[in-house]
């Protein structure tokens, strides 16, 4: 066994990485906080939020109002923009001195990059892309539930000897918490050393997309490969329903929708009230992205399509005539409010 950075006996508290970009917190960090608070209450642990960035003054004030006992703030000019090496180098120093028991991050591009590097630097275990977190009865060990093989299999992973116990959680898995009503958390500023040798990668450009975030949409109209040629009607339906457009990977690859509208394992985990899915086969890499929807409607011409396993209302038919009929119904009733 590789020697851990510190022992379970020395480890204290639950930490959440408060991911930020240009001064805005990632929604997944807030989702994690609610879950982390529940775990902290169960085990009597202190809950700490970790901020990392260039100038953090404004974010410190925001973070102090969250449901946290403590905020640790790590500011350095070379941390203004996320780069995996520099961030990992900085966070490694903080973790080695403060010795958290559990360290949680969002499974975003930045969160996964940071977690993957840190786990190796700290010689500890990392449970990636958890779909649930719990504490094991008796031992108090963190249990991370993960899905493998495109969602078909669920495994529970734990890390017995090494600390911190690290886990990343997909955006959308936990609901965002209601605003906390508590005393302001104390903010602790920590200095770190960021050598230029850890800043070899340079961010040359950063393009923000249109900014649609379908993980927050209440209603989704989803196009699969079977919606070929029907995008105008799919868009009319979304309009009439006041819904956002979502898409399977095949539909995104075809260019029918922007990549940020992709639903599934490598896209967005959506949690709408209503999802209408047109011409998708129901691959588990896709359905894991709509499993949290309250109601799913599926239209597919193939009665054997797997998507019907994941739907509340199933229509075995061609996309074109049904989508047209539904749009006509909605328009004749003036939409759906």
């Amino acid at each position: 066994m590789i020697d851990p950075a510190y022992s379970p006996q020395e480890a204290r508290g639950i930490w959440v990485f408060l991911e930020q970009d240009a001064g805005v917190l990632a929604p997944v960090s807030l989702e994690l906080l609610a879950k982390a608070r529940a775990l902290a209450t169960e085990s009597g642990a202190e809950l700490t939020g970790l901020l990392v960035g260039g100038d953090l003054a404004a974010l410190e004030a925001t973070a102090a109002k969250l449901d946290l006992d403590r905020v640790v703030s790590v500011a350095h000019p070379l941390l203004t923009q996320f780069t995996a090496e520099a961030y990992a180098h900085a966070v490694d120093q903080v973790i080695r001195t403060q010795k958290p028991d559990i360290f949680l991050l969002g499974a975003t591009a930045y969160g996964r990059d940071l977690a993957g590097r840190l786990a190796v630097m700290l010689r500890t275990g990392l449970t990636a892309d958890c779909t649930d977190l719990a504490l094991e009865a008796g031992t108090g060990l963190l249990l991370g539930e993960v899905s493998g093989f495109g969602g078909g299999v669920l495994a529970t992973i734990r890390c017995e000897q090494h600390r911190p116990q690290m886990a990343t959680v997909r955006p959308g898995v936990f609901p965002e918490p209601a605003a906390a009503d508590r005393a302001a958390a104390k903010v602790e500023r920590v200095n770190v050393d960021v050598p230029a040798a850890k800043c070899l990668v340079k961010v040359v450009a950063r393009h923000r997309k249109t900014g649609v975030d379908i993980s927050r949409a209440e209603r989704l109209v989803v196009a699969g490969a079977g919606a070929r040629g029907e995008m105008p009607n799919i868009e009319a339906l979304a309009q009439a329903l006041g819904a956002e457009i979502g898409a399977t990977r095949v539909a995104v690859d075809e260019g029918w929708a922007e990549r940020e509208r992709q639903i599934g394992q490598t896209g967005v985990i959506a949690r709408p009230k209503l999802a209408l899915v047109w011409g998708a086969s129901g691959a588990s890499q896709f359905t894991c992205g709509i499993d949290q929807a309250e109601m799913v409607v599926a239209v597919n011409q193939d009665p054997e399509a797997a998507i019907f396993e994941s739907a509340d209302i199933c229509i075995v038919d061609e996309v074109a005539p049904v989508v047209k009929a539904l749009v006509a119904e909605l328009q004749s009733h003036g939409g759906a409010e």
Binding site: I2, G125, T127, V153, T156, I157, Q161, V296, D312, I313
Partner: peptide, 24 residues
């Protein structure tokens, strides 16, 4: 050399409890 271990394994819930009402 692996700090993590599998504590349990199960098949993901089939059909996630959907109604699967057929409309035709």
């Amino acid at each position: 050399g692996s700090p993590t271990s599998v504590a349990g394994l199960k098949e993901a819930a089939q059909a996630s409890g959907r109604r699967r009402e057929l409309v035709s």
